[in-house]
């Protein structure tokens, strides 16, 4: 009959309710609390001692602290118990944002306690950390285009093929191309044809077999 949800966000009280006649009403009140702290120092002192690191459920300093994606701090045992209480509707107790076991981050202080994790509870979810991306130029050293030529070769792993990995795609090779008049050229061409022929036969054999 009367559905009222209330959220207090930074001094603004949001009051939502439904009832019979008007289906949905939103009222927004701004609550201005009287400033009771006379001195800035008192307030700072208070904030650093209480409040800031209190679990939103037990109101004590958060132990085995976890923080939700929406930024709300809880003891892991407290939050776990709440998530178990309403497994079908897991929302942040403070702001009702969706929340789940995998979406909370544990907070590790330097002097965190070494007391035993509670037997009845699963351990806190682990922190998530991603390795930084390695620098591209160092990961594939042979792939740079800056070293004067574009090399591409192919071959089949066994010795003879690896040896005569094709020179057809070997652009801008620094070796001088043999001239047709050179006797080496004929020899080269013959050798090349022969190896090519052998390679084809083997390749064919491999395909058939």
């Amino acid at each position: 009959m009367f559905d009222l949800s209330l959220s207090l966000i930074e001094g603004n009280l949001f009051l939502k309710y439904n009832h019979h006649h008007c289906c949905l009403d939103y009222h927004r009140f701004t609550i201005t609390m009287p400033n009771t702290e006379p001195e800035e120092a008192t307030r700072e002192n208070r904030e650093s001692n209480d409040g800031s690191f209190e679990c939103n459920i037990c109101l004590d300093t958060a132990k085995d602290a976890v923080v939700s994606m929406c930024g709300h701090l809880f003891c892991w045992p407290c939050l776990y118990q709440w998530l178990e209480t309403k497994p079908q509707r897991q929302v942040c107790p403070v702001c009702k944002a969706l929340i789940s076991r995998d979406k909370v981050t544990p907070i590790y202080g330097r002097g965190s306690s070494r007391r035993d994790p509670r037997d009845t509870l699963p351990p806190r979810p682990p922190g998530q950390r991603t390795e930084p991306e390695p620098h591209p130029s160092t990961s594939f050293p042979g792939f740079g285009f800056g070293d004067g030529g574009f090399h591409m070769s192919f071959g089949i792993g066994a010795f003879p093929f690896g040896y005569f990995s094709s020179t057809i795609f070997n652009f801008s090779d620094n070796r001088p191309a043999p001239s047709p008049s050179n006797p080496d050229y004929l020899e080269d061409a013959l050798l090349s044809k022969m190896f090519f022929f052998v390679a084809m036969i083997l390749l064919f054999y491999l395909l058939v077999a």
Binding site: F2, D3, L4, S5, L6, N56, I57, H72, C78, W82, V91, P93, V94, K96
Partner: peptide
């Protein structure tokens, strides 16, 4: 009042 039943939150 819904916060007294289904919309209750421990906060």
């Amino acid at each position: 009042l819904s916060i007294l039943t289904e919309d209750w939150s421990p906060a």
